[in-house]
Computed example of a mutant assay.
Amino acid sequence: MSDDVAYPVFRTPDLALALSTARRLMEFGRRPCSQVSVAAQLSSVAEVRRLGERLPGGRFEGYARYDEFDGVPWDEQPVLVIGVDGADLPADPAAYEGRFPVACELRSLPVGSIEDAFTAAIGRNRGEVHWDELYWPDAPEVGLHGESKHAEVTLLCNTLTRDLDEPADEHIVLVHVRSARVGGRQLREPYARWLAEQVGLTVIGPGRLW
């Protein structure tokens, strides 16, 4: 088992610029098997319905308390607890009561298939675009070998964290590398800096484990 650590390498209030920058970094490590996932957190019926129309294939799932439906058969639980596609969201506003925040996700899609539609639809909601199954090459200049398991790029939309719990008025691009800590120091931070430099970027803040 191993963890990844993500370093911010770009931030801007311009989402289109943030997306193009994240794509530039992603393309540096892209492989035929690379994939993309998106997620958003929504806090109103209007926004759930709007994204359902814009992203009909998205999976929408609402909040449920732990053990709230113990003993209730799965097929009798509310559709927002089970999870429902955007095209099948309930019309009755009462179905959303007690279910916020509602998460919207599309997972493990081909690169290029959802990024534009998602960023066009996200609005002021918090969300992320995440690319994985990339490959970071060897970095002989800093004496580090390449990797694939933790070769990832994330674009945070209107938020400071991948938990989507801290709102922001800007968007942040993260580069991920394998975590290797000794004495509290990340030994592979030079690798993150090297990767950013290959596409004209630089690490602009501390790394965070995910």
Rank of each mutant, 00 (worst) to 15 (best):
G57A: 03
V129F: 08
L19T: 05
C33I: 15
E152R: 15
E147R: 05
D92Q: 07
W194A: 02
H171D: 01
R11E: 12
P56I: 02
D4W: 13
L19M: 11
R181E: 13
V177M: 04
P140Y: 02
V203W: 04
V38Y: 01
L209G: 15
F60G: 03
G98F: 02
Q198I: 04
V48L: 00
A180R: 11
A39W: 15
S148F: 12
V153S: 06
D92R: 08
V45H: 08
L15E: 07
G207R: 09
A121Q: 01
V84N: 03
R181W: 13
V36T: 08
P73H: 01
A18G: 11
L55Q: 07
V175R: 05
F10I: 13
Y191H: 09
P110Q: 00
V173D: 06
D67M: 14
L25Q: 11
F118H: 00
Q198T: 10
V48D: 03
G62W: 05
M26W: 09
R208T: 14
R188Q: 02
F118R: 04
H171P: 09
V5C: 07
D67Y: 14
D3H: 13
E141S: 05
V45E: 06
I114K: 04
P32R: 04
P78F: 01
P190T: 04
V102M: 00
A22Y: 09
R188A: 05
W136H: 00
V5T: 12
P140M: 04
A40H: 08
T202R: 14
L55W: 10
P8Q: 01
A22F: 10
E189H: 14
R126E: 10
G58R: 04
Y7W: 08
A94M: 14
R49Q: 11
N158P: 13
S179D: 09
L174N: 15
V5G: 05
F60C: 02
V72E: 09
R188K: 07
D88T: 05
T12S: 13
S2T: 06
F69G: 03
A192S: 08
C157F: 11
L109I: 00
W210L: 12
